[in-house]
């Protein structure tokens, strides 16, 4: 069933990401589009997906869509609430997370991420929030999905201004042993870039309807490789849009 309805970039990204979540996996999600993607997957293709929030909440059963990772509605009726040291030490570093979800200000072709500064760290043009738990998610989750709403050459860069969170290639370059595959999927307004893990570049593997590979290459700061098996992503279905709009985010907390 294909829709004739119009939909927003946020809805398109959320639905595309939800379809990639494999059932029975353990997902570490932040608030915003990742929360929506996980909820949509739980309502469609991945009903046994388990979500863990950075605040320490496992098995949340919120009465309404949470507005932060620590929203009181995530705690009431949840299955477990862990301390921060248990969450980061046992759950993340302990290797219990299959898929992490992150955003960033800048990403490079190996899926290294900058969420600290634009410009020089010592005298930045713009100070960003920094790592939070992003560094540990990328280092420890088996794989990480990244959502970048705006696909521009300022965000998809040849050289990061600062590497807050390192993928496996940078870990190896420093003589370390990677514990994760790093970024495996990047979801944007134009489509999906993918890589399997260390040694591979992010490659354009799927585009949204109406977008050309040339559009995406032009909006990327490195020489983006295009997969010979490039596919066009099936547009959101009526059912997916109805779930998102009427059941998951009816008051438009994230879908504005």
């Amino acid at each position: 069933m294909t829709t004739t309805q119009s939909y927003s970039v946020d809805e398109l990204i959320t639905i595309t990401a939800a379809r990639e979540l494999v059932d029975n996996s353990v997902v570490f999600a932040g608030i915003g589009l990742p929360t929506l993607a996980v909820s949509l997957a739980q309502n469609t293709t991945a009903t046994n997906l388990e979500v863990i929030y950075e605040s320490g909440v496992c098995g949340a059963h919120p009465s309404e869509l949470p507005s932060t990772i620590a929203d009181a509605v995530l705690i009431t009726d949840s299955e477990a609430v862990l301390t921060i040291s248990a969450l980061f030490g046992y759950v993340l570093q302990g290797g219990r997370i299959d898929v992490g979800f992150l955003g960033a200000a800048q990403i490079d072709k190996h899926g290294n991420l900058n969420s600290s500064v634009i410009g020089d760290w010592d005298a930045p043009a713009k100070r960003l929030p920094g790592s939070g738990g992003a560094h540990e998610v990328l280092a420890n989750a088996n794989e990480t999905f990244v959502i970048m709403r705006r696909h521009t050459a300022r965000a998809f860069v040849k050289e990061l201004d600062f590497c807050t969170s390192a993928g496996p290639d940078r870990v190896i370059a420093e003589g370390g042993t990677p514990r994760s595959r790093g970024v495996t999927k990047v979801f944007t307004e134009y489509g999906v870039m993918s890589r399997a893990g260390a040694g591979e570049e992010l490659t354009l593997t799927a585009i949204h309807r109406g977008i050309t590979a040339e559009d995406v290459v032009a909006a990327t700061g490195w020489e983006l490789q295009v997969s010979p098996e490039l596919t066009v992503i099936a547009p959101p279905t009526e059912a997916e849009l109805a779930l998102l709009r009427d059941e998951i985010d009816p008051s438009g907390v994230y879908l504005r």
């Binding site: 560094h135 590497c163 807050t164 390192a166 940078r170 370059a173 420093e174 370390g176 990677p178 514990r179």
Partner: peptide
């Protein structure tokens, strides 16, 4: 097991 590959130890 953090910080390999990151610029954080540099600053």
């Amino acid at each position: 097991r953090s910080y390999f590959g990151s610029d954080l130890p540099k600053v």
